[in-house]
Structure formats: structure tokens, C-alpha cells
Design a protein around this nucleic acid. Structure first.
Lengths: 197, 197
DNA sequence: GTCTATAGTGCGATAGAC
DNA sequence: GTCTATCGCACTATAGAC
């Protein structure tokens, strides 16, 4: 019989998600996952740096879709428009077909502080990458980092709403709404806030 | 609180910081820390849930100083002004005397991805707490969470600048500048296309 | 592919503080 | 006496070393 079967990585991911959902993340050992996927523990750790990482694969593709609209925008595009375009890129990465999968995965992440931390770490990596892309376009600090943080924050909040139980709007629609809300926040009225001297 | 030898917790923190700085975080074992602080490993884990946590104690005091200005503000204070006040609270928690200590700790955190993740997790907790405080004041969603994210993001970026090598302005001054930059980012038309910077 | 160091847990015992 | 910090020991699972 074959010692090596194709799709090991995907099988490990699927098995992990199922076992985590059934028994909880901490109560599921890597040994169990490996056994269910018919590989050794060592194989699991060759595919994923640690137990948490199995839930966060595919990050690079996501980063690319976030960054691409930034890189291909016309030269004189205002920074806020670049943020807006990046958010449209995320919406393309998360079409409605993905919503069910995301809804299944999120409760697992939310149930474990260490998984939340990893999720935040991934978002922070994304922030750094967008900051780099913006600086490459000539956006200067601290505006570039601030814009990058804004983009990722709006994405994150929008994503959370996107997978909320009663939500059926597209990620793009939600992101646009959140970005408008941010504008309203910092400019509460036409005359603005009074002297923060 | 300590009956046997006072200051066990503080001793563990100081010893940890020193050993982490000298040898690196991963290369320092809890056994070493415990030995240097003249307690057992078990005592270390009694005070800190895990090895990383020893670098993040005192979070509650910080959260309190962040939230207090929000809670005590006049009833009709605009949300953005609450954000501004919260940022002033952080500046009070990080006076210039703390800067040297923060500068010593940050490179340790930055050197280890797992410590960065923990730091982000702490900031996320802070975000949740501010969001609660804002909702208690009647700020409605999604504005409350958005404002909370904004406050924490601006704090984080400002803090990073505050401990930068050549920086000598107060945290409050930096935070004010960053908040203004955010306003300029999302309302480019009022200041011209490229913002102020 | 096997072995092992180390993080982290559970629980009972001990000993000072009150 | 109660309370709580500390210890000691057995134990598991992760993650990296060999």
C-alpha cells in the first residue's frame, strides 16, 4: 500500500476542524489528529509549525488579495481610496460561499484565548504587509502605518459582522458601512469637536 | 499578600526580565527563573498562568486608567472626545519615568512571535473593555466598537513611537498627533488630497 | 522516525498570618 | 481554628533535537 497519500495537508486541516469542533481545541491532541488522518505526529508538525497553525493556513493567498488592489491602483490615488480598494479585495476573497465555512471555524477560535492571539498575530502580519505596500507607493509615515491599521481594523470588524448569525449582506457592503462609520466618528459634525488644544 | 517572603511576584518579574534580556525568552527556562528568585517552578505558575504572562502583569491598572476618563466624562461628550480622553489616561499611566523600563521590555517582546501575539491579545482585551464602557454611556453599535478599536490602535501606534530611540515627546503629544493624522486620513478633502503629514 | 527537554496541570501536604 | 502562599511530586502533551 502507498506510504504517502496526496492531500495530507488538506486532510489534516479537515480532521482538525472536525475534532476541534467536536471535542474542543485543548481536549484534542495532535496524536488524535494524526491518527485520524493516518499519519504520524511528526508529519503533522512538518505541515504546521504548531497545533494552532492548522487553523490558519492559506494566509498568503489572503494577503495577496488584500494587497493587489493597492499595488495596481493609479499613481495619484488618495490613501483612503487605497484602503477602500484593499477592503474590496478582501470581499473578493470571502464570497458568500465561504461564509458557512468561516462560521464553522470562528467559534473554535473564539473559544480559545491562544487561538485568538494567533488570529490577531495573523492580522498584525497583514497590517505590516499593507504598510509596506503603501510606503512603496510613496505614502509617508506615520500615515502609511495608520492607514494600514485602519484597513485591517475595518476588515476585522466587518468580517466579524459578516459571519454574525443574522447577517446576509456581502462583506463588501458591510466594510463600506464600517468605513463610513469611522469617518463619521472622527468628524462628528460639520463644525467638529471643540479645541483639543 | 505574600506571607513567607514578601514581593515574590515582583521578584519573579524582575528576574524574568533580566534573564530574558540576557539569554533570550526561549532560551530561559522557568526552572532558571524560579531558582534565581528562590522559589519553585510551581510558585512561578501560581503567580503567572504561563511563562509569557510574567511580562504582561499590571494590565488591570492600565485598563483602569484608560477607562476612567471615559466613565467620568460629562454626559453629552462626543464619542471622539471620549477617545481623546482615554488616550490622555494612557499618557498618565506612562509618564516619562516609565519610558526606560518600556524600552527595555519591548525588544524582548518584539523578538518572540508568541510574545507579540500575547501583546496583541492584551490590547484586544483592552478594546473590548473600552467598547463596554462606551456602550454603558449610550454609544451605540457599531460606533462603540469602532471607537474602541480606534482608541486602542492610536494608543498602540503612539506607544511604539514613544519608545522609539530618538523620541522624547510625551505620549500624550504623540497620541494627539496620531489622532489628528487619522482624521486627516479619512477626510482628505478638507485638508487637500495628500493630507497634512 | 525516535527521543527528550520543558511547559504547564492536579492534588495533597505544609506552614506562616490572622 | 481559617486562609492562603508555597512546596513537592506525579503526570501529560507539545515541540524541537537528534
Amino acid at each position: 500500500m502507498a506510504r504517502w497519500q496526496p492531500g495530507t495537508r488538506e486532510r489534516l486541516q479537515a480532521v482538525s476542524l472536525r475534532l476541534f469542533a467536536e471535542q474542543g481545541f485543548e481536549r484534542t491532541t495532535v496524536a488524535e489528529i494524526a491518527a485520524a488522518a493516518e499519519v504520524t505526529e511528526r508529519t503533522f508538525f512538518r505541515h504546521f509549525a504548531d497545533k494552532r497553525e492548522v487553523l490558519f493556513a492559506g494566509q498568503e493567498d489572503f494577503v495577496a488579495m488584500f494587497l493587489d488592489p493597492v499595488r495596481t491602483a493609479p499613481a495619484d490615488t488618495p490613501t483612503i481610496e487605497l484602503v477602500s480598494r484593499a477592503l474590496e479585495g478582501t470581499a473578493a476573497f470571502f464570497p458568500d460561499e465561504r461564509r458557512a465555512w468561516s462560521r464553522r471555524r470562528q467559534p473554535i477560535i473564539d473559544s480559545e484565548p491562544s487561538l485568538r492571539e494567533r488570529e490577531l498575530g495573523k492580522l498584525a502580519t497583514l497590517t505590516v504587509r499593507i504598510g509596506e505596500a503603501l510606503r512603496e507607493r510613496g505614502v509617508e509615515e506615520p500615515g502609511a502605518t495608520l492607514a494600514a491599521e485602519t484597513a485591517v481594523t475595518v476588515f476585522h470588524l466587518s468580517f466579524q459582522q459578516w459571519i454574525a448569525p443574522d447577517e446576509d449582506r456581502s462583506l463588501q457592503a458591510i466594510a463600506r458601512e464600517r468605513l463610513d462609520a469611522l469617518t463619521a466618528l472622527v468628524t462628528p459634525s460639520q463644525n467638529g469637536r471643540t479645541g483639543r488644544s
